[in-house]
């Protein structure tokens, strides 16, 4: 009873009408009433009420406190592909400054969408494919920062894949250590010739994870403590925080 009922796909009209109702709530704005939706879509009133109650029950829509007006529920947000905005020039300047200090690739990733999205890749040392980073967060240092932040990170690991002989299985990850240290590392797990260190960029106001700053180099060098480089990373992450939050 708790799972969604399977859709037989035999009610194309109902599905079309439900989507039209959703679209009308978006177009008309918060507070639109059932009567207004029915009139705008030229749907029979009883049908409109039924669809609205269904969409409210599934939490795509909510009723406002007057019980007349409707607005998009939080679940509706999952229907839209999250948009990533490019980092401001001041933030790019900070990343560029770090690139001037180290010989390895420096990348900036945003976590705002709940996925790893590289927003400022190093032009001289291109990072791994963006689709791979988004799909397999458990094998990249940036992805591990994101996972360590989740109350239930298993939900974000959709698929396991051994990219190299060194790839750690998701079950063996020590994300508590990542969260405690504020530092994630992978050595040759995504590409055999590349390792990566990443530190979080947190909003100064509430400490939420906004972005990750990573440095990529030869795996045997990344595996070393690299205290100086980590200090540099943290210093630049602190400078990025007010610019990205």
């Amino acid at each position: 009873m708790t799972g969604p009922a399977p859709l037989s796909g035999r009610q194309p009209k109902a599905v079309r009408s439900a989507l039209a109702v959703l679209e009308e709530v978006v177009a008309a704005g918060p507070g639109v009433t059932a009567k207004e939706i029915s009139a705008a879509l030229k749907l029979p009133q009883a049908t409109t009420y039924r669809l609205l109650n269904l969409l409210v029950a599934e939490e795509y829509l909510v009723r406002l406190p007057d019980l007349k007006g409707f607005e998009l529920g939080r679940r509706a947000a999952r229907l839209a592909v999250p948009v990533v905005t490019a980092p401001p020039t001041a933030a790019r300047a900070v990343v560029e400054h770090l690139r001037g200090l180290v010989r390895w690739g420096v990348h900036l990733a945003s976590f705002r969408t709940g996925q790893v999205v590289i927003v400022d890749p190093d032009p001289d040392h291109p990072p791994s494919d963006g689709a791979l980073l988004a799909r397999y967060p458990q094998v990249s240092a940036l992805g591990r920062l994101l996972l360590a932040e989740q109350p239930d990170w298993h939900a974000l690991v959709r698929e396991e894949r051994a990219f190299t002989a060194h790839t750690t299985r998701a079950a063996d990850l020590d994300l508590a250590a990542v969260a405690a240290a504020g530092l994630a590392r992978q050595c040759g797990e995504l590409r055999a010739d590349r390792g990566c260190l990443a530190v979080p960029v947190r909003a100064p106001s509430d400490g939420t994870l906004a972005a990750g700053l990573a440095i990529a180099g030869p795996p045997h060098r990344i595996a070393e403590p690299n205290d100086e480089i980590v200090a540099l990373l943290r210093d630049h992450a602190d400078r990025l925080a007010p610019l990205l939050a």
């Binding site: 918060p30 939490e59 909510v62 607005e71 998009l72 529920g73 939080r74």
Partner: peptide, 10 residues
């Protein structure tokens, strides 16, 4: 319905 139940901001 409280502020946390709706899509942010509208």
């Amino acid at each position: 319905t409280v502020a946390a139940d709706v899509v942010g901001g509208r």
